[in-house]
């Protein structure tokens, strides 16, 4: 039996959540209400400061705006390859390092941590130099064997160059998540498998990976959502260029709002983008419930 809350308890409970509620109202609820509203207006700082009601025009414009959907498609391609490869590499690395105890384990872990915590803009500038056609070390080495990789300076390779940076940045994240997951796996399952004479590969396939699947799903969900929102590195290196060849959806939206100052249309597009992200999130939490394993 839960005892009913006394009135002083109730006051305490309200006081504890009051700052949070105030913050959410001012910084979340009101902005969301505001962006939903301006999505129905023509609100463009470059024309006039007035807001003109246009109903669903911004939304219907979005449906036929090819550059918006191209940006969306580009983002999907980017997120698909980046997340696929970093998941694969990250899981492999985690299994390779595992819970093995060796001298310098902490040094190794710190090394892998660096791409994750380093300031993305600083990382971006470093990669800009690494990739540079004339001064960069990558092309210098490639030239020696008669190859070249125009990276971010060519329309054909720019997306792959950004995928490579993303893999470098985020593979360690997958690795750390999976290592954290590994450390919680029950020892009994392994003992049972060993007694049954399972080979190492069988243990990996039939015991480790299935037990890790909730962790991997969680990691995938976080990575997909963040990859769809990619911005800093691309914006800092080429601003989505050359041309619009690396303009992901976040960069497209940012330019629509803060370069073209078309806030009304940008708002409608942003809402569509948010809805797409929500679909991904809910889709994943639905999937996650299906793969839940009991142990």
């Amino acid at each position: 039996m839960k005892k009913p809350l006394s009135s002083s308890d109730r006051i305490a409970q309200y006081l504890f959540i009051a700052p949070m509620v105030a913050f959410l109202l001012f910084m979340v609820a009101y902005p969301i209400f505001y962006i939903l509203r301006i999505g129905f207006y023509e609100y463009s700082l470059s024309i006039s400061r007035d807001m003109d009601w246009v109903g669903l025009e911004n939304y219907s414009y979005a449906l036929t705006d090819k550059s918006f959907w191209m940006a969306g498609w580009r983002t999907l391609v980017f997120a698909f390859w980046a997340v696929l490869i970093e998941t694969f590499l990250g899981v492999a690395l985690a299994l390779f390092i595992g819970n093995r105890d060796f001298l310098g384990r902490n040094v190794v872990k710190t090394g892998f941590l660096m791409p994750l915590v380093a300031t993305p803009v600083a990382v971006a500038l470093t990669w800009k130099l690494l990739y540079d056609n004339n001064f960069g070390i990558i092309n210098h080495l490639l030239r020696k064997i008669g190859l070249s990789y125009p990276a971010v300076s060519s329309v054909d390779t720019v997306l792959s160059a950004y995928i490579i940076i993303d893999i470098w940045q985020w593979t360690p994240f997958v690795m750390l998540m999976v290592i954290a997951g590994l450390s919680t796996l029950p020892a009994e399952c392994y003992e049972a498998a060993m007694i049954d004479g399972a080979s190492r590969f069988q243990i990996l396939r039939r015991v480790t990976l299935p037990l890790l699947s909730p962790t991997i799903m969680m990691t995938l969900a976080l990575r997909i959502v963040d990859a769809l929102k990619v911005f800093d590195v691309i914006y800092a290196i080429t601003g989505g260029g050359p041309g619009t060849s690396a303009e992901t959806i976040n960069i497209f939206l940012y330019k629509e709002a803060f370069t073209n100052f078309r806030f009304g249309r940008a708002s409608a597009y942003i809402i569509i983008f948010c809805l797409l992200i929500m679909v991904v999130v809910f889709g994943f939490s639905w999937l996650q419930k299906r793969v839940e394993v009991d142990y």
Partner: peptide, 27 residues
């Protein structure tokens, strides 16, 4: 177990920055 407050604050984590930036800038 104030579930509603928990869900709202977690939802904020997945909403892209740009969705806040535009209205917050105007505000």
């Amino acid at each position: 177990r104030i579930r509603s407050l928990q869900s709202i604050s977690l939802l904020v984590r997945v909403i892209p920055t740009i969705a806040f930036l535009v209205p917050v800038y105007l505000m």
